[in-house]
Computed example of a mutant assay.
Amino acid sequence: MTAIDNELGGDLVLSEATGRDYFALLKPRVMSLVVFTAFAGLFLAPGPINPVMGAIAILCIAVGAGAAGALNMWYDADIDAIMSRTAKRPIPAGKVRRDEALAFGIALSCFSVATLGLAINWFAAGLLAFTIFYYAVFYTMWLKRATPQNIVIGGAAGAFPPMIGWAAVTGGISLDSVILFSITFLWTPPHFWALALFKKGDYDDVGIPMMPNVAGEASTKNQMVVYAVLTAIAGVAPWFTGLASPFYAVFAAALGGYFVYHSLKVRAMAEGDQKMVPAKKMFGYSLFYLSAIFAALIVDRAAMLMIG
């Protein structure tokens, strides 16, 4: 009997979850990207921050992201049990009960927001609280199952971390932090639609209205190209505001150009292609792209600081 079965009619028993199972609830791979982009926002922000305070801020953002992931798994346990890429998650695998995941997510949410507010500033804490709510409630509980624009609108949740990192230093937002937000926001649709193309059957099985399932492959591919171009432009934008150097701009332009190239390869992919190789390659490259862009921003700023 799985944890889900227990809640739906069997005897309620404590799960035998390990620390590793609870850690899996935090979506560590997603968390690592969140931490990295949040650190970039903190590092790029004008003004000093005590290293210990900076570490506390990043830890709170990481815990908040993990809390949102746990709440997402709690709510999506029904569809996670059906989809091939999520069936082994802790709840559908019977390792963690849904109510335990809910309590875990709420506790971590409260801890991360309160700690960030008390230790750093309440503006950053408010942004973190809004991000958790946006992802766990607005996206997971509503958008995801209601509209094929779920990823477009819901992508804001994953784009807030660099803005939160920036706010931890400055106590506010600026054009530069909005640009950092925009890079991830515009990157999210082509990234997830690439996945949705080769996992279309999974989304059909659970009735999630992803773009390829609702609008079809051709429309999805065309929109991926548009968003890839916008992402490439946003990636170069830090140079226009003076946040980054011309060296960064050249590197970002090259990365963005290759991102667009991958989107064009996906658009040229034959309708109904079973192997979906271009889509899989774009999904893989998209992960590299986002990491490389923020790494380049960090390296560029470090070099500028060394040069003086």
Score class of each variant (00 low, 15 high):
Ala68Asn: 09
Ser32Cys: 12
Ala17Thr: 01
Ala70Gln: 06
Ala65Ser: 15
Ser84Met: 11
Ala45Leu: 03
Gly64Glu: 11
Phe36Lys: 03
Arg29Asn: 11
Gly64Cys: 11
Lys95Leu: 14
Asp76Lys: 05
Ser15Met: 02
Ala17Ile: 00
Asn50Ala: 04
Gly69Val: 13
Met83Cys: 13
Ala57Cys: 06
Gly94Glu: 06
Lys95Arg: 15
Phe39Leu: 15
Leu26Tyr: 00
Gly41Thr: 07
Asp80Asn: 09
Phe39Asn: 03
Pro46Met: 08
Ala45Trp: 02
Arg89Ser: 02
Pro46Ala: 08
Ala65Gly: 15
Ile82Ala: 09
Thr37Ser: 15
Ser15Ala: 14
Met73Cys: 13
Asp99Ile: 13
Ala70His: 06
Ala62Ser: 14
Gly41Glu: 10
Asp80Gly: 11
Ile79Arg: 05
Leu42Lys: 01
Phe39Ala: 15
Ala45Asp: 06
Asp21Pro: 00
Thr37Val: 15
Ala55Asn: 04
Pro51Trp: 00
Ile58Cys: 07
Ala77Tyr: 03
Ile61Pro: 06
Ala38Ile: 08
Gly54Tyr: 02
Gly54Leu: 03
Leu25Ile: 03
Val52Cys: 00
Ala67Ser: 15
Phe39His: 03
Val35Pro: 02
Ala40Glu: 07
Arg89Thr: 00
Leu71Ala: 14
Ala81Thr: 07
Pro90Ala: 10
Asn50Asp: 15
Val96Pro: 05
Gly64Arg: 09
Asp76Gly: 07
Glu100Tyr: 06
Leu44Ile: 14
Ala77Glu: 04
Ala81Phe: 07
